[in-house]
Design a protein around this nucleic acid. Structure first.
Length: 724
DNA sequence: GTGAGGCCCCTTTTT
DNA sequence: GGGGCCTCAC
């Protein structure tokens, strides 16, 4: 039950025991950030400075919030009742449920996840006869979310041009639609609760008075709206304690504003920023590599991590002839680590994009290594589960048109597109929801519609008062979903997932009972909120020892004894898209920095000469990030790329002879003397690789990927290309 | 109204 | 390569 303050270093201790004032903690990777945050809360409470109810701590992910609660529970004698700990969205939701009337929402308002939101946007465009080619729904969704995250309503959007004006109009119409249906998207949770506080002086004063200490994790990832929300919540009396690391800002693409750190420092007159620079996680070579890499970024607040630990092993660098070969190598090395006694759960394979996992999974499967993939489709996002949830949503709030359209004819019950179109027209004419509009068309149109309406109504009455799990079970059975999936081929897994949904409901009830953290809403609405806000990381096979596969993004905040960083190739990492974005390359570099700093003892880095992407073989060059790591820290397991190119002339197969059986490239030639996949050099562009060829004789042209110099078509007869 | 096959697109991700 | 969406045939 002790805080163990004596185990903190001077900077950590200073941060933990800071007097009542605003603070900015610049906390490097592995510097004990979460520990400082939680210990500070415990210290504030234990020293009697505040009561738990006067503390609010906010994070980005549910995982981080849970972690914080667990640690707090270990440090504080009683359950920290009344303390607000959660994600931005979770806390905003809590506030909106408590003050739904003031916020202009039904108490049972439903939350749209990104999928639902896209469906809602599509539906809107169709109802307004908007040309989906000129206004792609995805673009509109992006526009709306970006505006909301800046704190702007449609009327605040500056009509720079005709297109923007149209988008703004659609934004307004979208908001009206949501309001009519009683649904709220993710950014709306924040914006709505922000506006509530801004408008309602009494509430604002209440919260500003209540929360004496507001602590923010991963502050570098906050967007403009989140920062403004915090400022409003803090008022003039509360202390803001912000922890962040500008070098780990990897979410600019979704609105995060690193600039919030500098703004905070200025606006709150932070005299001295506390820097946590001692790293307790990684051995010397790993940390040196990370520091060397990130030093190439210009926009930094500046900080240099150091460690008291030994240098440890050098980074192991591997070059594969293909992505498959790279994957096999990873499997072999993992197997070797396992033989040495490492637990698989302590080893991670990281990649830039989810699509890369397939090849790796294939190799792991072949090597019989158990693994777990993070990301991808999560439990509550599965189609069959979303269908069941849609029925439940209609029970909770029949005006939810999204849910209505999702399951009106699923399982098929003879309600076709035409009936639904008619219904939508009728609803539009009456300014009503689909549910309300059914009566106005049933007389003439589909009896099936009327029976669907009756089904929902009876589900509602039959489940009233039932415990949550039984309610879910009843809806799954009576909706016809279970029966439907039993009948279709390959539906067994879906039936299981429906059963699992019943379990999830039971587990949710139990958890609520223990923590009593729920806002004052009915259990069904609480469960639906949980499903939307926490899409469900808990997958099957959680308990067993398994290798961890995930994108670099989702690895943030985690650490492992050994890390494999795969696919370090130009165009993939850094991603080619990032090169055309403003500050894109620096964000990619920070991403690489995050990846490297996940490792405690061993870091493996790999790349492949060829990779299957979108069904085509791509030829790539090693990532520039690899060059930015000093040679002295690396140990090449395959001859270096440059050396290999030189060596290739004399001993073509020296570098990966053992398994060079498969034909790596098509042997497409065009009498140019070059072969696809061949490494070449150009006097101006440097090293490259042939990726395509066309034409014959004098007209022969080859396409060469020069990495950061770009991909170029060159006429063989003119360009001074040389085989490397 | 329903199911099967063709076509198009393709970052990163949490809430 | 693969998933979502649309069109076309029953």
């Amino acid at each position: 039950m002790s805080l163990h303050l004596e185990h903190l270093n001077p900077e950590q201790l200073a941060a933990v025991t800071l007097p009542d004032r605003h603070a900015l903690i610049l906390a490097g990777a592995g510097s004990g950030k979460t520990r400082v945050l939680t210990t500070r809360i415990a210290w504030l409470v234990k020293s009697g400075r505040v009561s738990p109810g006067e503390v609010l701590a906010v994070t980005f992910t549910n995982k981080a919030a849970r972690e914080m609660l667990t640690r707090l529970a270990a440090m504080l004698p009683i359950h920290p009742r009344g303390m607000w700990v959660g994600t931005f969205h979770g806390l905003a939701n809590r506030m909106l449920r408590a003050h739904h009337r003031e916020a202009g929402l039904p108490q049972a308002f439903q939350i749209l996840d990104s999928q639902d939101q896209l469906a809602a946007v599509k539906r809107l465009e169709r109802s307004l006869n908007v040309d989906e080619d000129r206004f792609p729904p995805r673009e509109l969704q992006y526009f709306i979310n970006a505006r909301k995250e800046e704190g702007e309503r449609a009327r605040d959007v500056e009509p720079r041009d005709e297109l923007t004006r149209r988008y703004a109009d659609l934004y307004a119409a979208y908001d009206e639609q949501c309001q009519r249906e009683g649904v709220v998207d993710f950014p709306e949770l924040l914006l709505r609760s922000f506006e509530l506080l801004a408008r309602n002086e009494i509430l604002r004063a209440h919260y500003a008075e209540r929360f004496r200490h507001i602590l923010v994790d991963e502050f570098q990832d906050t967007n403009r709206l989140q920062y403004r929300w915090l400022k409003l919540l803090a008022g003039s009396a509360s202390c803001l304690f912000a922890v962040g690391d500008d070098d780990q800002s990897i979410y600019a693409f979704r609105g995060a504003r690193v600039g919030n750190m500098a703004d905070f420092e200025r606006e709150y007159r932070i005299g001295s920023v506390i820097r946590l620079e001692q790293n307790y996680r990684s051995q010397g070579n790993i940390l040196d590599a990370a520091n060397a890499l990130i030093a190439n970024n210009r926009n930094r607040l500046g900080k240099n991590l150091w460690t008291a630990s030994t240098q440890g092993d050098p980074l192991r660098v591997y070059e594969g002839g293909s992505d498959a070969e790279e994957a096999r190598w990873i499997a072999e090395e993992v197997e070797a680590l396992r033989r040495e006694g490492d637990r698989l759960a302590e080893i991670a394979v990281l990649y830039r994009s989810n699509a890369q996992s397939r090849v790796i999974e294939h190799a792991l499967f072949g090597a019989a290594i158990p693994y777990r993939v993070y990301g991808g489709l999560r439990f509550f996002e599965r189609a069959e589960v979303k269908h069941a949830l849609a029925y439940l949503r209609l029970v909770a709030l029949p005006d939810d048109d999204n849910a209505f359209l999702r399951v009106a004819n699923f399982p098929p019950r003879g309600i076709g597109a035409r009936s639904l179109e008619q219904l939508q027209d009728a609803a539009k004419a009456h300014g009503a929801s689909l549910w309300q509009a059914v009566d106005s068309v049933t007389g003439r149109a589909s009896p099936a519609l009327a029976s669907f309406r009756a089904l929902i109504a009876s589900l509602k009455s039959e489940t009233a008062g039932l415990p949550l799990a039984e309610c879910v079970e009843h809806v799954v059975a009576r909706s016809g979903l279970a029966e439907h999936y039993k009948a279709v081929r390959e539906g067994a897994e879906r039936v299981e997932n429906l059963a699992e949904l019943v379990n999830a409901a039971a587990a949710f009830t139990e958890e609520e009972r223990q923590t009593e953290s729920g806002a004052a809403v009915d259990p069904l609405t609480a469960f639906l909120t949980h499903a939307a806000l926490e899409a469900g990381e808990h997958q099957a096979g959680e308990g067993q020892d398994a290798l961890q596969l995930m994108t670099v993004h989702s690895a943030k905040g985690l650490e492992f004894n050994a890390v494999f960083l795969s696919g370090l190739e130009e165009g993939l990492f850094p991603h080619e898209q990032s090169l055309v974005e403003r500050d894109g390359l620096e964000e990619e570099r920070r991403l690489a920095y995050v990846a490297i700093t996940r490792a405690r003892k061993r870091l493996y880095v790999s790349f492949a000469q060829t990779r299957m992407l979108h069904g085509q073989t791509r030829y790539s060059l090693p990532s520039r990030f690899l060059d930015e790591i000093p040679e002295g820290l690396k140990k090449w397991l395959t001859p270096r790329f440059a050396e290999q190119r030189r060596a290739a002339v004399t001993a073509a197969s020296a570098w990966s002879a053992p398994r060079k059986k498969e034909p790596l490239f098509g042997t497409s030639r065009n009498n140019s003397g070059f072969r696809i996949g061949q490494n070449v050099t150009h006097p101006k562009f440097g090293a490259g690789v042939i990726v395509d060829a066309e034409g014959q004789g004098e007209d022969a042209r080859v396409q060469v990927n020069f990495g950061r110099q770009g991909v170029k078509w060159l006429a063989v007869s003119v360009a001074k290309l040389q085989a490397a």
